[in-house]
């Protein structure tokens, strides 16, 4: 049997992933997370008398801390199975990837374990984040003059 023909048998017996449902869950849950973050941002502005920009940094830090603690207690990955990518796409996903890697490799020591592996998943985001920021910055400079 040709590989193409076998692939047909596989496709016939493979359940379809419900992408639409997953997308809707992600949209709603992610939207709620965004709205709560905005509320927190307003809260920080009000309570600490901060400008919007600084308050935003505090919100990001808060989300990172919460995501890391939830990861440590083994709750975050359970939430991901329910809320799909809503928690993975925002900064919470980034924090989660680093905390989970640090937890996983702590037995191999501080240097060769945690140090060498903490960016195992997040490294990609950082590398291509920096590269794309460079190019977008360049485009902005050329098109808008800075």
């Amino acid at each position: 049997m040709q590989k193409q023909e076998y692939k047909k048998i596989v496709d016939n017996n493979t359940p379809k992933e419900n992408y639409l449902k997953n997308a809707i869950i992600t949209f709603i849950a992610g939207g709620i997370l965004g709205a709560l973050s905005e509320l927190l941002l307003r809260g920080y502005m009000l309570w600490l008398d901060l400008p919007r920009k600084e308050s935003g940094v505090l919100v990001i830090l808060t989300l990172i801390i919460i995501a890391s603690i939830l990861t440590g207690f083994g709750i975050f990955d359970v939430l991901v199975t329910k809320l799909k990518s809503a928690l993975i796409i925002p900064i919470t996903g980034f924090a989660h990837s680093m905390t989970s890697a640090a937890l996983e490799y702590k037995h191999e020591g501080l240097v060769l374990g945690i140090g060498a592996n903490i960016f195992k998943l997040a490294g990609t985001v950082i590398l291509y984040g920096v590269v794309s920021v460079y190019f977008f910055g360049l485009i902005r400079l050329l098109v808008m003059g800075g």
């Binding site: 359940p15 440590g72 989970s100 890697a101 937890l103 490799y105």
Partner: peptide
Amino acid sequence: RNPTEYGTPKPKT
């Protein structure tokens, strides 16, 4: 795969 605590949505298969 990934670190054990890392959660990603998995396909049914």
